[in-house]
Design a protein around this nucleic acid. Structure first.
Length: 878
RNA sequence: GCGGGCGUGGUGGAAUGGUAGACACAAGGGACUUAAAAUCCCUAGGAAAGAAAUUUCCGUCCCGGUUCGAGUCCGGGCGCCCGCACCA
């Protein structure tokens, strides 16, 4: 059959896409009802920060989620697929400072712009459930939960060290401290103690760690990252006596935490944190020590500061007594590398078996005694100089431990010290420690959720009564001065104490924006509930989220906080489960080539003209013709100007092309390289499908299904059902790149079949072609929904393909009556053999040995063995 | 330093221990066209032999091992990438 393709019009994506989007919207087909009796499926992509424009990363993320949503809907499930805005945060305040726009105005304008962009992508979202975290109708529930958590003992107020910018009068996150200076002000950052609000996530350390094992639909990598982050270690708390003659005031002992009690006989010194009470007490009598501690405080907590910091110590003159030998005295140092908030803020140092202790001991001439001897090493000649010995071995120089393994020695030390008591308490006890710290949520910023408490001089900290919620942000604030606008506001913080009615002060700190994103997935289940954050019956039906999709950059903080928050909500009656996300998928980034001028300035791809192919490619600036250097492939970023605007792509090619390209080629968990050629390839395929379906629509189909199908028609039907089977399987496993390949294969096969049909097809062929067309459209619908609707209409269906059921596979079409098996001789492929599918091993063997190629390869010898793997392969061993 | 991942054509990548390179991009050749675009057809891991059909050898970072059979499993090495990191 020949078709004059010139008569076919091009598929006009821009026109068709807006038309179908309007129709979907009018019919409300993506609205999800909570009382829908069908099985529920919740698919969620990480909601965006409303920065102003969507980027290609969003397109990739939301396309993947949309494919899943549309597939599950076609599988007959009630699908929840909502979208919202992670709308509080610093960029809005920065915009206010830089551009004199109010953060609220800026944020809502961005939301409106981005919503329009998302809608142009044709995502099957239930916009009726849209939430913005900056809206009082959202954050009032967050404030209520804060108060519930407070009552349940999940919140506490305590002193904590922060990075303080003395010029901007604000607390900085570690990432905002660059080379010890504030990123905005450039001022040297100080360490300050501030009273802050904390969520007691560390109460759940053990549970958060153990439950990772139940998250079997999470990437192994993310579970491992969380495991390391929580950082469980088992060790021993040991109380050292202090030599009374040297100890300041009443301090009589020093408690340390160690995971290596076996090395106790290798101890050379004790070290305590500059913030340790013993250090403070000693400093009170020793100005030089006080000076040293002050010096330690000036060091930043940033990575750079830690990397470059030298290990420094100060001998306090205090002596500690070795727990196994009253006559053995150890010097106590204050050391800058000891953290106050891990363990007890104090250690004993065993230089021979710890790198830091060795560096420290070498610097201050404290020496070392090896106590673990490597296997096959003479203890007499075993010496440590610059490299500590960290592996297993036998104990030496350790009195009653000598000869034991490390594990035996650990156990022996623990047993002995546990038995021994001092002042009614054992000298040592076993303890499990976690690296995970409590979650400090106080931020001295305006654009965040106000913390709903009031400070009264008489009553102390008083929660805002639930009836007074929400505590809303005042609109009349200024950003002309550094510091927190809420603190500066003339009236907002002045309130009456809810308890004594006396004058009181409102808390001016707002919550970390990670709080906002720690429960939005729960709010989506019933965003209409004005009284409570969630509706228990509803939230328990929808949660946990069946499939959560987002970037790997949230592997730790967001996902861990959400896991904690769900537990806290459970404890306070807002949810009925502990884990928010049953399935997690982390998608890769969108990356692009970079371009820069001779002088090193980055140039946007849109301003570049590329000529030549492969290695001979060269680029010039479109405006001036200046030569441009083609650089490495990097994550799309504004600073390197290698971004591609989704709006431009959708305007030029349509949303379906962008969606298809985002799913093609690269496996979804890996980075995908954005190329102009790739987009054009996708666009050509859109047009090809349109023409192909046009040709199928031109086939006059018999109304009744034929009783018999000829061989040619059977080939078409098999191709269709094989594709159906493969695509179904691969969507379910989120292997979108393979779905794309299978759809290409099927389209190629259908195209070939139509090409081979002369004039009018036979009724069985006509029926098979129409069936194949229907299946093809429904297969690519999740990826390219607009094109699918257009094609579905072309095929004469009066329905929307978006509401069509997934077609059923006919399993008998997946099996062949004969199979072709590769034949190997000694593991090398020499021939193929075609046998009936049901053929037995003996028949296959006979057929294989009769092959000329096999006879030739055997060269007259008889085979030692013939291995027949059913349905797979035959191997003749000579 | 600790933990994890990866290494396959010109490129992105396929391949439950069973025909390595599916599918796509880029490329080359051809058809159609005044021409271009668009579209369609053909070729394509490397090497050698042959007029050709075709045949042979080599080939998944390197070295070894397990197996009838290894891109896949195991041991060692090299290279790249990611996460965490003064955590006692």
């Amino acid at each position: 059959m020949t078709v004059d393709s010139s008569k076919n019009e091009r598929y006009n994506a821009r026109e068709a896409e807006t038309r179908w989007q309007k129709l979907w919207d009018e019919r409300g087909i993506y609205a999800t009802k909570n009382d829908d009796p069908r099985p529920k499926y919740y698919v969620l992509e990480m909601f965006p920060y409303p920065s102003g424009r969507i980027h290609m990363g969003h397109v990739r993320n939301y396309t993947m989620g949309d494919v899943v949503a549309r597939f599950k809907r076609a599988m007959g499930m009630s699908v929840l697929h909502p979208m919202g805005w992670d709308a509080f945060g610093m960029p809005a305040e920065n915009a206010a400072i830089d551009r004199k726009v109010h953060p609220k105005e800026w944020t809502y304008a961005n939301i409106a712009a981005m919503k329009k962009q998302l809608q142009s992508m044709g995502l099957s979202l239930d916009w009726a459930r849209e939430v913005a975290t900056c809206d009082p109708s959202y954050y009032k529930h967050q404030q209520k939960m804060f108060l519930d958590f407070l009552k349940a003992g999940l919140v506490e107020r305590k002193q904590s060290k922060v990075n303080w910018d003395p010029v901007d009068h604000t607390v900085l996150a570690n990432e905002q401290v660059i080379d010890g200076k504030g990123w905005r002000s450039g001022a040297t950052v100080e360490q300050r103690e501030l009273t802050q609000w904390f969520f007691k996530i560390s109460d759940y350390s053990e549970d958060l760690l153990n439950a990772l094992d139940t998250l079997d639909r999470w990437p192994e990598k993310v579970r491992l990252m969380q495991k390391n982050w929580i950082g469980r270690s088992e060790g021993l708390l040991v109380r050292f006596m202090l030599d009374a003659a040297t100890a300041p005031n009443k301090e009589s002992e020093l408690e340390i935490f160690t995971t290596r009690p076996d090395t106790l006989f290798g101890a050379k010194f004790m070290a305590i944190s500059p913030d340790h009470p013993l250090a403070t007490a000693a400093a009170a009598k020793n100005p030089k020590l006080a000076e040293f501690i002050e010096h330690c405080h000036q060091m930043g907590t940033s990575q750079a500061a830690i990397d470059t910091a030298e290990k420094l110590g100060f001998d306090t003159g205090i002596k500690a007594v070795h727990p196994f030998d009253p006559g053995w005295k150890l010097p106590v140092y204050v050391a800058n590398f000891i953290l106050m908030d891990y363990g007890t803020g104090a250690i004993f140092g065993c230089p021979a078996h710890d790198q830091r202790d060795l560096d420290f001991a070498n610097k201050y001439g404290l020496g070392n005694t090896p106590v673990v001897c490597p296997p096959n090493q003479d203890p007499a000649s075993f010496v440590i100089t610059d490299v500590p010995y960290l592996e297993d071995g036998r104990m030496i120089n350790s009195r009653f431990l000598d000869g034991m393994t490390i594990a035996e020695a650990k156990e022996e030390v623990a047993k002995r010290l546990e038995r021994e008591t001092r002042g009614n308490r054992p000298v040592a006890q076993r303890q499990v420690n976690y690296r995970l710290r409590d979650w400090g949520i106080s931020r001295q910023r305006y654009w965040g959720c106000p913390i709903p408490v009031i400070h009264c001089e008489k009553c102390g900290v008083v929660p805002v009564p639930a009836s007074d919620l929400p505590v809303t942000l005042p609109d009349d604030v200024t950003f002309d001065k550094p510091g927190n606008p809420l603190d500066r506001h003339p009236t907002w913080k002045n309130v009456k104490c809810p308890q004594c009615a006396g004058p009181a002060r409102r808390e001016t700190d707002t919550m970390d924006t990670f709080v906002d994103s720690s429960w939005y997935f729960a709010r989506f289940t019933d965003p209409w509930n004005e009284k409570s954050p969630t509706t228990p019956k509803v939230v328990n039906e929808w949660l946990p989220v069946d499939q959560y999709i987002g970037g790997i950059e949230h592997a730790i903080l967001h996902l861990l906080y959400s896991r904690f928050f769900t537990r806290a909500m459970h404890k306070t009656g807002h949810t009925g489960m502990d884990e928010p996300f049953a399935g997690l998928f982390t998608q890769g980034m969108v990356v692009h080539e970079t371009y820069r001028t001779k002088s090193g300035d980055w140039v946007e791809p849109a301003n570049i003209k590329i000529e030549g192919m492969g290695d001979a490619r060269s680029a010039t600036l479109m405006t001036t013709g200046e030569p441009i250097e083609i650089g490495s492939i990097e994550k799309m970023s504004k600073s390197k100007k290698n971004t591609v605007d989704p709006d431009d792509i959708i305007a030029a090619y349509g949303a379906d092309t962008a969606r298809w390209f985002m799913l093609s080629d690269s496996p979804p968990e890996r980075d995908v390289i954005w190329t102009e050629e790739g987009v054009q390839g996708a666009w050509r395929f859109v047009q090809r499908l349109w023409r192909l379906i046009g040709e199928v629509a031109g086939v006059k189909a018999p109304t009744a299904r034929p009783a018999e199908f000829g061989p040619a028609a059977l080939v078409v039907r098999k191709a269709a059902h094989r594709a159906l089977n493969n695509v179904s399987d691969d969507i379910a496993r989120l292997r979108f790149n393979r779905c794309v390949a299978h759809i290409y294969e099927f389209a190629n096969a259908l195209s070939d079949a139509i090409g081979e049909v002369e004039t009018a097809p036979t009724p069985d062929m006509a029926w098979a072609l129409r069936e194949a067309g229907d299946i093809l459209v429904r297969l690519f619908h999740p990826m390219m929904p607009h094109l699918a609707e257009e094609c579905w209409a072309t095929l004469g269906h009066g329905t929307l393909v978006a509401t069509e059921a997934w077609p059923p596979v006919e399993p008998e079409l997946l099996v062949e009556s004969t199979i072709t098996l590769p034949v190997q001789v000694n593991g090398k492929k020499r021939a193929e053999v075609t046998v009936p599918r049901q053929a037995g091993e003996a028949d296959i063997k006979a057929a294989v040995l009769a092959l000329d190629e096999v006879k030739k390869a055997l060269d007259g010898k008889s085979p030692k063995k013939v291995i027949v793997v059913p349905q797979r392969i035959v191997n003749v061993v000579a």
